[in-house]
Amino acid sequence: MSSQEIPEERLPAEQDTAHGAVEVADDPFADPGLPAHRPRIQDIDERAAKRSERTVALMFTMSMLATVGFIASYVIFPVDKIVFIWPFGHVSALNFSLGLTLGLALFLIGTGAVHWARTLMSDVEVADDRHPIEAAPEVKAKVLADFAAGAQESALGRRKLIRNTMFGALALVPLSGVVLLRDLGPLPEKKLRKTLWAKGKQLVNMNTMEPLRPEDVVVGSLTFAMPEGLEEDAHDFQNQIAKAALMIVRIEPDDIKDKRQREWAHEGIVAFSKICTHVGCPISLYEQQTHHVLCPCHQSTFDLSDGARVIFGPAGHPLPQLRIGVNSEGNLEALGDFAEPVGPAFWERG
């Protein structure tokens, strides 16, 4: 094995290992120092350098053209023009051309600058010394002395009354800011426990906006309902529907496993809160055969034939059921509000 000679004096290296508690192994090989600079073709051949110069200039010129193209696109293409461009499909002509021309105009400046730096600017590596971050001992001593002098002159340590009252004042003053935040919103009180449902409120079909009749609800269908009197253009519609949204299915009474559920149903028509008890997404997927409903957000699954028990997923308790019946006009109506809060659980829920 013909080995390249390693000069003796480079083995082993000197290394400062004593640094307090730390013990580190020595370096076996000495630092050979910065390698010699290897010239690039542009450093020795002026023709190659000229070529690089032309390449950079070409990129900058093309960038200018791309900007002209951007302005032209802005003027030419109507905002609603859709074109087919393979392989992207149907795209907005304006968005496509503006993005492409702007992108090229920018990108070509970048490639030009980088190419210029890599081929024509000096690539000789230089070493710069580092300096310790921490101050020299005499600087530190001076600072400590200055601080001691300042502290002494303030008499903060001696005049405790001033010090303590100042700390007190500074500690109290931010309280005003905290107090000012009080009106960000109302207190929770019982707000999360009540919905718009009440005894005698009719169930309104969300699609037809007509009162629901028992015969409208067939086995295997999922119907969404909201309380009568809630209008879409009401100022608090979003807040109310966020709690009152209802999901209605019909199950053969014999298939209902939960006794209370059967009692709260009307001829097998059951009404459950549509708001998931996990973190509040609306539940929207229904399996006809199993009577399972699934929340599309986090996949909590509830069995509507068994008291909306959680059978899978992160929800912690069943969906609240709304007790329903039929009024004198033959429409479905609520027999009261939900017995428990709808939606996600919270500390005061109990």
Binding site: N95, T111, G112, V114, A117, E125, V126
Partner: peptide, 30 residues
Amino acid sequence: VGMPLLPVYMAKAGGFFFLVFGFISIVAAI
């Protein structure tokens, strides 16, 4: 050990800003 800010990194880093901006613009186009 490396190369100086002026001119090499001025050009490389400055140019790289345009590369990133240009790349994102093209992505936003398509």
